[in-house]
Structures are given as structure tokens and as C-alpha cells.
């Protein structure tokens, strides 16, 4: 800090007796900052962190919060999850993982293709195209699930068209392959991939494509050698984000979820709420949260490396 007065600059100095006042003011500022943060911190500690710790302790039988939990340390829930004959829980976990993976990959592919189409063709109706492609972002999960249910249930348009046009009937909702979940999740989530990829394509330096074109590159070569390497991190991060949101979703599985094998979120609901099998409800929850956090960790890693790459 320098004091400027009457045309000459004085060297920085602290006026005698002001140092303790500055210290006091800094402390008061810090205290105010912490007080402003306190409601948020307290709220999340009590509403998220504490329940998270409690379900972990309950899954180990260390806290008999609900009836039917073992009195004392026990790995009963984990044993049943991993080693029950026929491995029904592991099977449900694998089903959930696979259905989510297929939905995330297809939604990302669809969003990517649509963004690429917009970049390459620049259609006259691009505004309408963008608005349409982003619309599902605004539709609530339960409503979107219900909307697709009206199309997919046995008397819905799609099965009726398949039946009348091709003469075959296949269940498309509450089916054993999770087709309803996949179809609905793709519609709900391709917008995420489209929005991310569209902004990525917008940010690409047009000179790169111009240079490649001048050197005689075809459209396919431009896609393969320029667009794809420069947008791969965006595609990966959208795939991870979509995977996470479908993996932890309840409404889609609630409406379209197969009766068997069950989506993991529905399995927790059935075990804990309908059957009162709290030990399994808590154990599946712990595993579910662990996997969800691991996926979000991967998502953050992809984002960080993308940021670093952009900074370079």
C-alpha cells in the first residue's frame, strides 16, 4: 500500500497503533465469513453426512436404529449381498450397472451425433433444432418416465404399431432386459450430451478445420483427426455424468423398472420399506453410495484433466 499526496509518494508504513485494529477487523471478518457459512455446513452435516455415517454403522450392525438389525458387529448384510446362493443381489447390481452403461453410451452417442450434425451441416433450422434437443433437460424425471410409459406400455403406441405392422409383441416396459429404462433414460439424457458437445464444437478453432480442408482432408478425415481428438474429453465427461444420474435415479426404475431383476434403487425400496429387511436396505445403500461416489470421482478426474489440457 502506498500513500499518495501532494505529488510525492511515501513508502508504505503502518500508522502507529493501527496494527491491532487491523488484526481485530480481519478476525471479525473471518468470524462473519464462518457465520455466513454455518447454516449451509450445519445443514449438510446433519442432513447428509450424519445419515451417511448412520447407514454405514447400521449396515455393520453397530447401531440398532431400526427393528431387526443385528445387536453388535456383524457382516451379515454384506455376506448376503455377495454370497447368497444364486447371487440375486449381485445379479441386480450387474443388471443396474449394465442397463445404466448401455443407456449412458447410447445417450452420449446420440447427443454427440446431433451436435456433430449441427456443426457440419449448419441447417437453416438450427435454432429450432437446438431448442428441441435441449427440451428434455427441462422435463422432470417422473413426468418423463410417465410420458414414455404411455408410449411403451402394452396398449401404448409403440407396442401397438409393432403388433399391427410387424405382427409381434414384445414387452417394452417392466421387461426383464430393462428396455423401458434404457429407452426412457436415453430420451431424458441425450440433451446433456448434446449441450456439452454443442458447446465443445462451438469452442473449436475454425482455422484447424480450414487448414485440414486446404490440405485436402475429407469430412470423415476432419471428424476423425480433428473433431474427435479435441472433443473426446467432453464426450467422456458427458457419458460419466449421464451414467451417474441414471445410476442413482429412482423415478425411471419406479415406472419402468423390471420386476426381476430389479434396479438397485428399487431393490433398496423393496427390502427396506416393503419387506422391513433393514439390514439389506442399509447394506445395498452403502454399496450403492460407494459406487456412485467412485463414478463421481472418475467424472471429476475427467473434468480436471480436460481443464488442464485446455489450459495447456
Amino acid at each position: 500500500m502506498s500513500c499518495v499526496g501532494a505529488g510525492n509518494t511515501l513508502p508504505p508504513r503502518v500508522i502507529k497503533g493501527t496494527a491491532p485494529m487491523i488484526k481485530l477487523s480481519v478476525r471479525k471478518d473471518l468470524l462473519t465469513d464462518w457465520l455466513l457459512l454455518a447454516p449451509l455446513t450445519l445443514f449438510y452435516v446433519s442432513m447428509v453426512i450424519v445419515p451417511l455415517i448412520l447407514i454405514f454403522l447400521c449396515s455393520l450392525g453397530l447401531l440398532p436404529l431400526t427393528p431387526g438389525l443385528p445387536q453388535g458387529f456383524s457382516l451379515e448384510g454384506y455376506r448376503r449381498f455377495f454370497f447368497t446362493s444364486g447371487a440375486p443381489y449381485l445379479f441386480s447390481f450387474g443388471f443396474t450397472f449394465l442397463v445404466t452403461l448401455v443407456a449412458a453410451l447410447l445417450a452420449t452417442l446420440m447427443g454427440y451425433t446431433m451436435a456433430l450434425f449441427l456443426k457440419l451441416r449448419k441447417p437453416r433450422w438450427s435454432k429450432l433444432f437446438i431448442s428441441m434437443a435441449r427440451f428434455p433437460l427441462f422435463v422432470p424425471y417422473l413426468i418423463a418416465s410417465f410420458m414414455w410409459w404411455t408410449l411403451l406400455y402394452p396398449k401404448g403406441y409403440i407396442p401397438m404399431i409393432l403388433k399391427n405392422a410387424f405382427g409381434f409383441f414384445t414387452p417394452l416396459t417392466n421387461d426383464p432386459y430393462g428396455l423401458g429404462i434404457i429407452i426412457c433414460a436415453i430420451w431424458m439424457k441425450f440433451s446433456v450430451a448434446f449441450s456439452i458437445m454443442h458447446s465443445q464444437f462451438q469452442m473449436l478453432d475454425p482455422d484447424l478445420e480450414a487448414a485440414a480442408r486446404n490440405l485436402g482432408a475429407s469430412t470423415w478425415q476432419v471428424i476423425r483427426k480433428i473433431y474427435f481428438p479435441l472433443t473426446i474429453y467432453g464426450a467422456l465427461s458427458s457419458a460419466a455424468a449421464i451414467f451417474l444420474s441414471v445410476f442413482i435415479a429412482f423415478s425411471i426404475a419406479f415406472v419402468h423398472g423390471a420386476s426381476w431383476p430389479r434396479f438397485l434403487s428399487m431393490l433398496i425400496y423393496r427390502d427396506a420399506v416393503e419387506r422391513g429387511d433393514w439390514i439389506m436396505g442399509y447394506t445395498i445403500s452403502v454399496i450403492y453410495v460407494f459406487v456412485a461416489f467412485f463414478i463421481s470421482f472418475i467424472y471429476m478426474k475427467i473434468l480436471t484433466s480436460h481443464e488442464r489440457r485446455r489450459a495447456r
Partner: peptide
């Protein structure tokens, strides 16, 4: 963002 709502509910 990464916390399944059903888990929070039963917790």
C-alpha cells in the same frame, strides 16, 4: 449430486 435420493430417504 452423487447421492441416491432413495438412500437419503431410508437413512
Amino acid at each position: 449430486f452423487a447421492f441416491p435420493a432413495i438412500v437419503l430417504g431410508i437413512a
